[in-house]
Design a protein around this nucleic acid. Structure first.
Lengths: 192, 192
DNA sequence: ATTTTATATTGACCGTGGTCATTTTTTGAT
DNA sequence: ATCAAAAAATGACCACGGTCAATATAAAAT
């Protein structure tokens, strides 16, 4: 069985990725053009699509990288125990997620896998987010009538809702943090 | 004083809309091509964009129409009182929302307004969904420690989460209805 | 070294959404 | 009826993501 991972291949891929990062550093994610990336990388357009299924696939990789860095940071600190602490710990994650409308939309679109056995890097990020929160909740003083797995899924749902409403003119009175705190208070520590 | 809404205008717009509906009836939403619509409507391409900001704007109108029809239906029946009844009443709405991946993505993308004072038909649908659920909750026996407004926002968040996870290979063990029921039981009637 | 085969790269080309200067039609004033 | 100004329709054109047959390069076999 031949396993020829040519050196050229990883080099070209690396060139494309770093070129894309550079392009994004200048104009943000939304403004990225494939033509610009391949020009900066010094390869032909077709080469790009030999390395990435489509433009979104590249975006997934780059955005998931950044998101994983945010999750690293969140995980490195001492586990939060209260709702405000949880929100504070997740702040860098949410901050990046809503840094650009384009980024948020893409995150949501790829938060679940497109097809079975085709789970992309962003879907893994969401899975990781879920697991990190679940671990926090297990050692925090939250309601115990439902499993912490379910609680963590709810935190994710509410965080997405709160981020979405940031973009919604009909609900722009409250800030993201206030809204999320209201949600999580009601979800994690309901007053019997 | 100038208010010349030419008859021609509404006629052309109507032609475009019904042509689009016809096209969708055949191939679904995702496969719709603007060229096909204008051909079927017997107008030039430029005319399309004189009537709709872009392709998404047309889609918003058509999808919001369908969604409003579903909401009409949900509202016409006797108000549900329990979690399973609420889920059952919303079933046609959720059914349509997830009828096509393309539709679901577009719904989410336009669920909030793109910009202040630029609230599209889909954003209004979400607002309506929220209000309908809130009214149901007010006369149902749910937790009373938080306002029903908040409860309704939560229902929306959980419904979206449950729909999203339908598309996610990492969480495809549970069905949509089961998952949503689990969510709403924990959200609406927490065991002190 | 030479040939063969697998893999990577290329760039002309296509599909489709969206633009805009030009032309056609409608409307209101005379 | 005639004309001027506003509104609507037109279609050639552009931008940009994505394809693919042809070509170039690397690795394996002789």
């Amino acid at each position: 069985m031949r396993k020829p991972i040519q050196k050229r291949t990883i080099k070209t891929r690396a060139k494309l990725l770093s070129a894309a990062e550079e392009v994004i550093r200048h104009g943000g994610y939304e403004a990225l053009r494939v033509e610009e990336v391949v020009k900066a990388a010094g390869v032909a357009k077709g080469t790009f699509f030999a390395h990435f299924r489509d433009k979104d696939a590249l975006m997934e990789i780059l955005i998931a990288d950044k998101l994983n860095a945010c999750l690293d940071q969140a995980q490195s600190e001492t586990p939060p125990k209260t709702v405000p602490e949880i929100i504070a710990s997740l702040e860098p994650v949410h901050e990046f997620m809503t840094s650009e409308r384009y980024v948020f939309d893409l995150l949501i679109r790829y938060s679940g896998a497109t097809a079975i056995a085709d789970i992309g890097p962003i879907a893994y990020c969401f899975e990781r987010y879920f697991r990190v929160v679940m671990m926090w909740l297990e050692t925090a003083e939250m309601r115990k009538d439902v499993p912490s797995e379910l609680l963590a899924e709810g935190v994710q749902a509410f965080a997405i809702q709160a981020m979405s409403l940031q973009y919604c003119a009909l609900h722009s009175a409250t800030t993201f943090t206030d809204r999320l705190e209201t949600y999580l208070d009601a979800w994690l520590t309901p007053a019997g």
